[in-house]
Amino acid sequence: MTITTAIVLAAGEGSRLRSSAPYKPLCEVGGKALIDHALDGLAAAGLSRAVVVLGYGQAAIRDHLARRTASIAVEIATSDPRLPNGVSVLAAAAHVSGEALLSMCDHLVDPALYARLAKAGSGSGLRLGIDRRLGHGWVDPLDVTCVRTDGDRIVAIGKGLEPHDAYDTGVFAVGPALFEALGTLAEPSLTEGVRVLAAAGTAEIVDVSDCSWIDVDDPPALALAEGWMAQPAAA
């Protein structure tokens, strides 16, 4: 069954983009806020519902979401922006029954990538969209989360990981197993949750190397994203 609910993480402080927007989810790319790119992209991929996890600047972002023309039903959960991002995932868990697509509001993503993960499902734990185009010009090698795989399974994940054979795109198909794994951790980050499932052999991959995506985390990445949006075929 194709996943129809998404979790969108949007709680962080976004300090590296503060010169472009006071709150990262409202930073505009191609004249459109990042949070709107995320929600409209999920809708274009066929998802019907999104749980958006807010933290830093949540009042302004709530107001923005309330003014949106609905392309997808939106519910809001909240998390402390000072805590690891796994806490945000757990904040959304109460709003989710079964599987969900997990994504980041600061990633611009080809809707086809979302659709592929939604169709793949979470398997026995989770599935992560990975990109094998190492050295891609849109990827910051100092900031990207790297992945080492064995067949269709994740065997290691982390920033600065060597050796690695793929990049983490920030889009996952997840189920209760991830929420349970995060719940066992004292300081639950998403990466640590993936490591728990990888150790159990239940963290798998979906190759999305043919799909475009970019993590808009700082001014250089924002400039690259603006260039992408200026292309005629851009979403």
Rank of each mutant, 00 (worst) to 15 (best):
residue 90 L to E: 07
residue 153 R to K: 13
residue 222 L to G: 08
residue 147 V to S: 08
residue 69 T to C: 09
residue 230 A to R: 12
residue 221 A to T: 02
residue 195 R to D: 03
residue 164 H to R: 13
residue 63 D to H: 14
residue 197 L to W: 00
residue 89 V to W: 04
residue 164 H to Y: 11
residue 133 R to V: 05
residue 143 D to Y: 05
residue 219 P to E: 04
residue 177 A to F: 00
residue 169 T to G: 00
residue 90 L to S: 08
residue 150 D to V: 06
residue 108 L to T: 05
residue 30 G to M: 11
residue 130 I to V: 15
residue 42 L to T: 10
residue 125 G to L: 01
residue 229 M to L: 14
residue 104 M to Y: 10
residue 200 A to Y: 07
residue 151 G to D: 08
residue 46 G to M: 11
residue 138 W to D: 15
residue 232 P to D: 05
residue 145 T to L: 02
residue 187 E to K: 05
residue 2 T to H: 10
residue 24 K to W: 13
residue 91 A to Y: 09
residue 107 H to D: 14
residue 167 Y to F: 08
residue 36 D to Q: 14
residue 26 L to A: 08
residue 220 P to E: 01
residue 186 A to W: 02
residue 217 D to I: 09
residue 12 G to W: 01
residue 143 D to N: 12
residue 230 A to K: 03
residue 203 A to W: 02
residue 215 D to M: 09
residue 202 T to S: 13
residue 34 L to K: 11
residue 84 P to W: 04
residue 54 L to K: 10
residue 167 Y to S: 06
residue 59 A to M: 13
residue 25 P to N: 08
residue 16 R to S: 13
residue 79 S to V: 08
residue 185 L to I: 03
residue 180 E to V: 02
residue 186 A to T: 04
residue 162 E to T: 14
residue 14 G to M: 06
residue 76 I to V: 15
residue 214 I to D: 02
residue 66 A to V: 07
residue 158 G to Q: 05
residue 17 L to G: 14
residue 118 A to F: 02
residue 174 V to N: 00
residue 200 A to T: 07
residue 160 G to A: 05
residue 7 I to R: 02
residue 166 A to Q: 06
residue 132 R to P: 12
residue 69 T to M: 06
residue 45 A to L: 11
residue 27 C to N: 09
residue 1 M to A: 14
residue 96 V to Y: 05
residue 44 A to R: 15
residue 198 A to W: 00
residue 41 G to F: 09
residue 150 D to F: 08
residue 79 S to T: 06
residue 156 A to K: 14
residue 108 L to G: 03
residue 123 G to E: 03
residue 154 I to C: 03
residue 158 G to K: 06
residue 25 P to K: 04
residue 229 M to P: 01
residue 46 G to L: 11
residue 12 G to F: 00
residue 183 G to Q: 00
residue 167 Y to I: 07
residue 224 L to I: 13
residue 93 A to I: 04
residue 79 S to M: 12
residue 35 I to A: 07
residue 226 E to S: 07
residue 233 A to Q: 09
residue 141 P to C: 03
residue 130 I to Q: 02
residue 165 D to I: 06
residue 176 P to L: 02
residue 31 G to C: 08
residue 16 R to P: 15
residue 129 G to A: 11
residue 93 A to K: 03
residue 166 A to M: 05
residue 104 M to H: 13
residue 27 C to E: 12
residue 184 T to G: 02
residue 7 I to K: 07
residue 53 V to G: 12
residue 112 A to I: 13
residue 217 D to H: 12
residue 62 R to G: 11
residue 26 L to R: 10
residue 131 D to G: 11
residue 94 A to C: 04
residue 151 G to R: 07
residue 223 A to H: 09
residue 153 R to N: 14
residue 91 A to D: 08
residue 193 G to H: 00
residue 206 V to L: 09
residue 175 G to Q: 03
residue 156 A to T: 15
residue 67 R to Y: 09
residue 202 T to D: 04
